[in-house]
Design a protein around this nucleic acid. Structure first.
Length: 106
DNA sequence: TAAATGACAAGTG
DNA sequence: CCACTTGCCATTT
């Protein structure tokens, strides 16, 4: 079913370890659709808070938070910093340090 | 049925 | 690093 993709995305996001992050494109690729980054963002936008997902652990490929609304942006940053994720002076996260690679230590 | 939309990404200058 | 463009694709209008 096409719902497979959504299911995988949800499970994947739920398995991101605390203190680690994944990009929208990364989630899409791991879920089987390398071109589905925009769908991942849509899924999060609609079901995130509800499914009790660590939605804040998903950021864009540039290592930055993509939330348009200021208050949401601040909330995501706060949640990440709370888990030990460091932001650079330019509001960026070092993907080489924090990006989660499934199967690598967990 | 067609056009617009969006929590994206990669390429270019 | 920033601004802009192009490619993407399911869901909404």
């Amino acid at each position: 079913m096409a719902e497979e993709f959504t299911e995988k995305v949800v499970r994947l996001i739920r398995s991101i370890p605390k203190g680690k992050v994944l990009t929208y494109g990364g989630v899409a690729a791991l879920a089987g659709n390398p071109r589905g980054s925009r769908q991942v963002s849509r899924i999060l936008h609609s079901m995130s808070r509800k499914h009790r997902l660590p939605w804040h652990r998903v950021i864009n490929s540039k290592g930055r938070i993509s939330l348009p609304h200021p208050s949401d942006y601040e909330e995501q940053r706060r949640l990440l910093e709370q888990e030990g994720v460091q932001f650079s002076l330019s509001e960026r996260i070092d993907l080489g340090t924090y990006m989660w690679i499934p199967g690598r230590e967990e």
